[in-house]
Design a binder for these strands. Structure first.
Lengths: 212, 212
DNA sequence: TGTACATCAGTGAACGCGCGTTCACTGATGTAC
DNA sequence: TGTACATCAGTGAACGCGCGTTCACTGATGTAC
């Protein structure tokens, strides 16, 4: 399709862009970052992609569609990050790696992460909403199954409760890293993502195995 | 000051309000709730308080000032919730109660909670910012000290790390309750706040005592 | 290879809207004497 | 108790702005023959 390998350099007005969809998604990330996690204006995103305000409508269902697409992208990247851990055969190792990967993913894609959880997937609207819900739930279920394997013989309710605690720990730790909270609370300033990731991994195993 | 006990019923235009400051803070909470956690427009808040768009400027430094005041209110309520736990003499009981109270506080004031952590206290601006940072840090330090008492003889860095994990767990659990995430992830639907609060309390003690 | 044509993916002007903030004003309140 | 006056806390109109979205348009691309 696109013949313009060098992005839009030398592109004449009216010419096709090449991969505007991708470019808009990337521009959205930059704008989200710039506005400290808040949803940017569609016009600002278009501006950043060097495109007119109407152009995004050929690729997304308005602003909500764009933001939903960003979130979906994020959840798919998260699933990818979990995939590797899923293959591990030892339950403890599997859960520990999966939770640590969760932290690493969020640290690597902080802007995606913030948008993914800026609002509950349940309250998204539009045609992407169904896909969003599905892919979000899938990543939680991956964790829940890993918890179940470690927990052993406990009720389903207890598994859900432990998975909730484990996910809460990972999510909370990630939020501290991803927003400026770490700095604000004078904690862990010098600690690296990797240290936090490993701690979270171990803590999740602890919670899954012993319960609380 | 205010002679208008029945809010603004029967109040003539131009008359003083009584306690518009308080009324605006309450209106802000309602509007935040209505917009799913996002910062509402100052005009919408004024509208809800049955007051002209310019009125809030007699009480807050613009929109940012209002939102900062909401956050400060929240942190002060949180400190109040922690105070009771602080008096407990047994370290384990103190930490467990404090963390559980944290969850109870957030469940009781979900809108406050969301605004408190919608953006890092560090990025707030305006004259309330300093107060905000101080009161936010104070509530974290309360937790950190409770963790230290349970942890016993470990390095300061280790205390901070364990406090970080404990706070992450509580914060993550609370976020799940406060946003629609609980429902979206099909988890804990039937569980009550109290159950989660107690679980979080026990988990925090576990983390503080054994580390990860 | 050339031509006619449908489709695609842009443009840019325009729309109405609600926003944050300012400002001159005004009526009610509190105070001094 | 009455009066003069300063201050307080509202009003409502106005400002300029950026927003999301629509729309007629147009040039480039891909396809059929």
């Amino acid at each position: 399709m696109g013949q313009h390998d060098k992005k839009d350099e030398g592109r004449l007005p009216g010419q096709h862009h090449g991969d505007l969809r991708r470019a808009l998604l990337e521009a959205a990330l930059v704008e989200i970052e710039a506005s400290d996690g808040a949803a940017p204006s569609l016009r600002a995103v278009a501006r950043r992609a060097n495109v007119s305000p109407g152009a995004p409508y050929h690729h997304f269902k308005g602003k909500d569609g764009l933001m939903a697409a960003v979130a979906v992208d994020g959840f798919e990247a998260l699933r990818q990050a979990q995939r590797e851990a899923l293959a591990l055969s030892k339950p403890e190792e599997r859960l520990e790696t999966m939770s640590a990967q969760y932290v690493r993913f969020a640290a690597a894609h902080p802007t995606h992460y913030r948008i993914m959880f800026a609002q509950s997937p349940a309250t998204h609207s539009g045609d992407q909403a169904g896909h969003l819900r599905q892919v979000a739930m899938e990543s939680f279920l991956n964790l829940a199954m890993a918890v179940a394997a470690v927990a052993g013989k406990v009720s389903e309710a207890e598994v859900r409760a432990r998975a909730h605690m484990a996910w809460s720990l990972a999510h909370g730790a990630v939020m501290t890293l991803v927003t400026g909270l770490t700095q604000a609370l004078l904690v862990e300033e010098a600690e690296h993502v990797e240290v936090v990731a490993r701690r979270v991994g171990r803590a999740c195993v602890l919670i899954a195995r012993h319960g609380v």
